[in-house]
Nucleic acid binder design. Sequence first.
DNA 1: CTAATTAAGGATATTCATATCTTTTATTTC
DNA 2: GAAATAAAAGATATGAATATCCTTAATTAG
Lengths: 144, 144
Amino acid sequence: MLSKTAEYALRAVIYIAQKGTEDSKLGIREIAEGIDSPPSFTAKILQSLTRNNKVVSSVRGPNGGFYLSDKARKLPVRAVLEAVNEEGLFSACLLGLKECSEARPCPMHQQFAPIRKQLKQVFDNTTIQQLVNEGNKGRFFLSH
Amino acid sequence: MLSKTAEYALRAVIYIAQKGTEDSKLGIREIAEGIDSPPSFTAKILQSLTRNNKVVSSVRGPNGGFYLSDKARKLPVRAVLEAVNEEGLFSACLLGLKECSEARPCPMHQQFAPIRKQLKQVFDNTTIQQLVNEGNKGRFFLSH
DNA sequence: CTAATTAAGGATATTCATATCTTTTATTTC
DNA sequence: GAAATAAAAGATATGAATATCCTTAATTAG
């Protein structure tokens, strides 16, 4: 469904938003451990999230690390997928056909259209903060 | 969303059902050309569809090739994904978490559950023949 | 200013999906 | 039975996603 990159990105952002603040930032090791992901690879992904888009904030040096601004917490979850170029999910043809469109629909288009629409809605209308609240209910990620 | 393997599998099955019959089977080259896919790779995928599952029928030798039995045409589209081991789509956690379940939902679980359910319904309740009928409306694949 | 810390960046390695090629087997036609 | 045809099967190659490592730059504390 999603690439590993997108999965780690989402998990990392939720984790950082959940456990980090501007005063108490999270290091890459803690994040990777918390979301059970490879540290170096996760670091690369976080670079995309701090650069391209402005989802995650970071500071180098002692007491440095990653955190999410209040503004970032209000971003739609979709912003995370944007940052890692995973937006094909919302537009690509299910059968992988270039020509597929509303005007020239592939055999699965009509059936799939409403699903894609819902998918879009979820990622557009859910904020990162909302996911954090969800996550806190289930206390999903490792704390330590 | 889907792997290339799954995309080619779906396209191939629809194409074969659309243009082939037991009396007039389709060769791998025609299929690959028709659905715009690499011939050898498509051949491998069709092997999965003739073996593991019994979606596609095949005959070797002169006038041999691939076709779909009437029975196969009534199979749910899901059977194609089964044959190529792409069923994770219906069960895997969106965030890639092993522990995720109704009892212990990840932060996106509640939002994603109805989408996954719909996805499942589409693949379960749509038959291959229905897709062929859809496809015939739009005459999507190359004919020659 | 120096040393320590931590993310950023660049280069490289590994793995798996994707893709190709060759040989074998089954089937048909003559 | 021999030759031709076409899929099955096996071996191998390629490429992109995944993953690691090493160096650089920024920041802080002393």
